[in-house]
Computed example of a mutant assay.
Amino acid sequence: MVRQPHYFPFWRDANRLLLAIDQAVRDLPRYHKYTLGTDLRRQAMTICQLVRRTAPRGDDQSARVMRLVEADR
């Protein structure tokens, strides 16, 4: 049985992070909203994309998780 990515705990947490960052950026001063806010949102979306690629598919999940962990080193 292949589970959908939204049941994968990393996926859930990555989306919660993206939502929290989006809400926090709304309260930033205008200057930071468009500089720092854009960078934070982009990084959170990259995390979501990496987690999506790591979602269980029946193959070597441990190797996929290691690539996720090492993605930004």
Rank of each mutant, 00 (worst) to 15 (best):
R42C: 05
A20S: 13
L19F: 06
R64C: 02
G37M: 09
D27H: 11
M66Q: 07
F10R: 01
R64G: 02
T38H: 06
A71L: 00
P56R: 07
L18H: 09
R12S: 06
R3D: 06
L18S: 08
R53Y: 04
C48E: 04
R67V: 01
R26H: 03
D13F: 12
P9Q: 10
M1G: 15
L19P: 01
S62H: 12
H6M: 14
L36R: 05
G58D: 03
P9E: 08
Q23L: 11
T46K: 10
V65Q: 07
L50C: 08
T38D: 14
I21D: 05
V2A: 12
K33Y: 02
A24S: 10
R53L: 09
L28I: 07
P5E: 10
R12C: 05
H6P: 01
A20C: 06
D22T: 13
R30M: 02
L17H: 05
R64F: 03
R57Q: 09
D60G: 00
Q49G: 13
V25A: 05
D39H: 13
P5I: 06
I47C: 08
Q23M: 12
A20F: 02
I47L: 15
H32N: 12
L36D: 08
T46D: 05
A24C: 03
A14T: 05
Y31R: 12
D60E: 14
L18G: 01
R41L: 03
D27L: 10
R3F: 11
R52C: 01
L17K: 02
Q23K: 13
E70Q: 08
W11I: 02
S62T: 11
R26Y: 04
M66H: 00
D13H: 15
R30D: 08
S62F: 07
A55K: 07
A63W: 04
A71F: 12
N15E: 10
A63S: 10
H32K: 10
L17S: 03
D13M: 15
R73N: 15
R42A: 11
G37T: 13
A14G: 12
A14Y: 06
L28K: 02
N15M: 14
G58M: 04
V65C: 07
H6V: 07
F8V: 01
V2Y: 14
V69Y: 07
A55P: 06
D59N: 13
S62L: 14
I21G: 01
E70I: 00
D60Q: 11
Q23E: 13
T38K: 11
T54D: 00
D13R: 15
M66K: 08
R57D: 14
R30S: 08
A63C: 05
T38N: 13
V69C: 02
A44P: 00
T54G: 00
A14K: 05
A63L: 11
R52F: 10
P5Q: 08
R41N: 10
L28A: 03
Q23W: 02
A44Q: 04
K33M: 03
A63K: 12
Q4A: 09
R64L: 05
R12D: 09
R67K: 12
K33D: 02
H6C: 04
R73G: 15
A14C: 11
Q23R: 15
A20I: 01
